[in-house]
């Protein structure tokens, strides 16, 4: 599929479609443990936001939220999907994975708590800051998780906050 929005050429690969005149939908798939591709999804979302002229401090919050969610899938899950829906006034990020799930979300939300394995920590991941960073950078944050099934994170960032 391809997608352009009135003169703005946006990401063509994987999937991206226009729901209506004013909405851009970007979808990406993620593979667990694929550290080579880590950050690419968030970079692409960031580039589209730059193309449509969203303010840089807002883009930064969206990029951080997206990156942390993306990394969680790569670190913990088998596979996942990222869907960024860009409206004129807000961006919604939905990051859903098939993975081990989170047994205690309250604990996982605490800064410094992490279940990341050592080889990932050696790369500087697994600081236990991902979920708190997402919650702080987004205006709306929701997390649903089922053990041995997966996790779904939904975040909204308003463009004029």
């Amino acid at each position: 599929m391809f997608c352009t929005k009135k003169g703005y050429a946006v990401v063509r690969e994987r999937c991206c479609a226009m729901e209506d005149e004013q909405t851009i939908v970007l979808e990406f798939t993620l593979k667990g443990s694929d550290f080579n591709a880590a950050g690419e999804t968030s970079s692409k979302i960031k580039k589209v936001l730059q193309q449509i002229g969203v303010k840089s401090d807002i883009i930064r919050r969206i990029a951080i939220s997206s990156y942390e969610a993306e990394m969680n899938v790569i670190i913990h899950a088998y596979q996942g999907k990222v869907r960024a829906t860009i409206y004129p006034d807000r961006t919604e990020l939905v990051v859903e994975d098939e993975g081990p799930g989170i047994a205690d979300i309250g604990l996982a939300m605490q800064e410094g708590y992490s279940t990341a394995p050592d080889h990932v920590r050696e790369m500087g991941f697994g600081a236990g800051m991902g979920l708190p960073n997402m919650a702080r950078c987004s205006d709306k944050f929701d997390i649903q998780s089922a053990v041995e099934e997966g996790t779904k994170i939904t975040m909204t960032i308003f463009h004029n906050a």
């Binding site: 550290f35 880590a38 950050g39 968030s42 930064r60 990029a63 997206s66 990156y67 500087g124």
Partner: peptide, 15 residues
């Protein structure tokens, strides 16, 4: 002290 590729994404996304 990290030299692996993920630092580039962090720097880019965090501006």
């Amino acid at each position: 002290m990290q030299g692996h590729q993920n630092i580039a994404a962090v720097a880019s996304l965090a501006g």
